Simulated assay, not measured.
Amino acid sequence: METESDVEVGLWDAELDSLLLRVGERFGRVEPRRRMRDYVRGLLGPVGRKNSWQIAEHAGHDTPYGLQRLLSWCQWDPDEIRDDLRAT
């Protein structure tokens, strides 16, 4: 039997997916989009320490290098993403 909190979590999860799809358009390739999704879910999830290793492990990655590459080298504009988030 589904509880009210299960329904709330499902709605929240669907809204987060919708939001990630919108800002995902700011990344030119699918790999950075997936890494961005994994990074955000790791920050919001039950990860004890919010560093690249623990977030990567939570997301099922072998190493944190992909997430670190997203933050250090990938071409994306945080101001545009901020504006996307504010527009919602």
Rank of each mutant, 00 (worst) to 15 (best):
P78L: 05
P64W: 00
D6T: 04
E80K: 11
E2N: 10
G10D: 15
S5V: 06
P64K: 09
R69V: 07
G45D: 13
G24T: 09
E2I: 10
Y39D: 03
R33G: 02
C74K: 12
R33N: 08
R26S: 13
L43R: 02
E25A: 13
W12L: 10
S5E: 15
R69F: 07
V7S: 08
L19F: 02
A87D: 14
L71P: 01
L21G: 04
R22T: 11
W12D: 10
R26T: 07
L44C: 15
G66N: 04
V9S: 06
D77Y: 09
E31M: 11
Q75D: 13
G28S: 05
L70K: 11
A87S: 15
A59D: 06
Y39M: 09
L44E: 07
L85P: 00
R34G: 12
Y39R: 01
R82W: 02
T88F: 13
L67I: 04
R34Y: 02
E4N: 10
H61Y: 14
H58P: 03
R33C: 03
L21D: 15
S18Y: 14
D83A: 13
K50V: 13
L20E: 03
E4I: 14
R69T: 10
R37A: 15
G28L: 11
L19S: 14
E4G: 04
D77A: 07
D84C: 01
K50S: 14
A14C: 07
H61A: 09
H58F: 14
D77E: 15
R82S: 08
L21K: 12
P32D: 03
E57M: 06
E2R: 08
S18D: 09
G48F: 00
Q54M: 07
W53N: 13
L16N: 02
D83N: 07
R35W: 08
H61F: 10
E80S: 09
E8A: 13
W53E: 11
R34V: 06
A59H: 06
D13R: 14
S72D: 09
G60V: 03
V40N: 00
E2L: 11
W53L: 11
P46I: 00
Q54F: 13
P46E: 05
G24V: 01
M36H: 00
I81N: 01
L16Q: 02
R49K: 09
E2V: 04
V47K: 07
R26E: 15
R49V: 10
E15H: 13
V30R: 03
Q68A: 05
L19R: 12
T63L: 09
Y39C: 04
L71E: 04
E80P: 00
L71N: 04
D79K: 15
R49T: 15
G66H: 05
E15V: 03
D77I: 05
E8P: 03
E31G: 06
E25P: 07
R34C: 04
T88Q: 12
